[in-house]
């Protein structure tokens, strides 16, 4: 297999919440076009990693490169403009805006109206449920619909890299399968995906590569398929 150019690269990233050292030197490189997943227990620092990439939390030390360009000094809105989007933990959709408006906000930085409309159609193809809910307020959607809306909204900016934080959280197993199928589909359209998941089995089975995180450090890096076979991973995260 040829070594692909990394689209996102973290080099020894440290993040603090006040005096708490949340990320203790994260390094990883995500190849363009891949699905990479970050698994680990609660509080390991997975979400913090995503927030740090986006500049919501500031990295105190280290470098974050997007397509070779340093982004660790950028503010979230500037990171978004580079072509990264995120569905953060807890979906964070705008509760008092309609589904349509939520999606429009996803395309906030774009001015190509016609193509935005096309992309909206694409999102509705991916998640047909949303089409029936266009006029409904985001806060009144069900959990699964909100998750789809959050992913859809993130796609509306036509990102090159999509950061997904726990898309399966709180969803029925059937829905989880559907979401993961869609993630694969999105990836096939050429979007690189960095996935954070508790549902390690599901995440690893669709990913190319995987990272295992423990208390602020990445302790294991490998191809996803091999991580699925790894005894330690099996024991700790796959419940086998």
């Amino acid at each position: 297999m040829t070594v692909k150019e990394p689209i996102l690269e973290l080099k020894d990233v440290h993040t603090y919440y006040g005096n708490i050292h949340a990320l203790k030197g994260i390094s990883c490189a995500i190849p363009s076009g891949d699905i990479a997943c970050l698994i680990g227990a609660n509080g390991a620092g997975k979400s913090t990693t995503l927030l740090t990439i986006f500049g919501v939390q500031r990295a105190k030390r280290g470098e974050i490169l997007f397509k070779g360009y340093p982004i660790h000094h950028l503010r979230p809105e500037q990171v978004a403009a580079k072509g990264i989007s995120q569905t953060p933990e807890g979906r964070q959709i705008f509760p008092r805006m309609t589904t349509l408006e939520n999606l429009e906000m996803g395309a906030y930085l774009r001015n190509d109206k016609a193509e935005v409309a096309d992309d909206m159609e694409w999102v509705f193809d991916l998640f047909p449920v949303l089409k029936d809910r266009t006029r409904q307020l985001g806060g009144t959607l069900s959990g699964g619909e909100q998750q789809m809306l959050a992913i859809g909204r993130a796609l509306m900016s036509r990102p090159e890299l999509l950061l997904l934080d726990e898309p399966s959280l709180g969803l029925a197993p059937k829905l989880v399968e559907k979401i993961f199928e869609t993630i694969l589909e999105i990836n096939k359209m050429g979007v690189t995906i960095f996935l954070v998941e508790q549902n390690a089995h599901m995440a690893l089975s669709i990913s190319n590569s995987g990272y295992v995180m423990e208390t602020g450090r990445i302790v294991l890096t490998d191809r996803a398929a091999r991580l699925l076979e790894n005894e330690k991973v099996k024991k700790a995260y796959l419940g086998e």
Partner: peptide, 10 residues
């Protein structure tokens, strides 16, 4: 001054 530290952003 603690309040200053706990907001690492910007």
């Amino acid at each position: 001054h603690e309040a200053d530290q706990s907001s690492p952003e910007d």
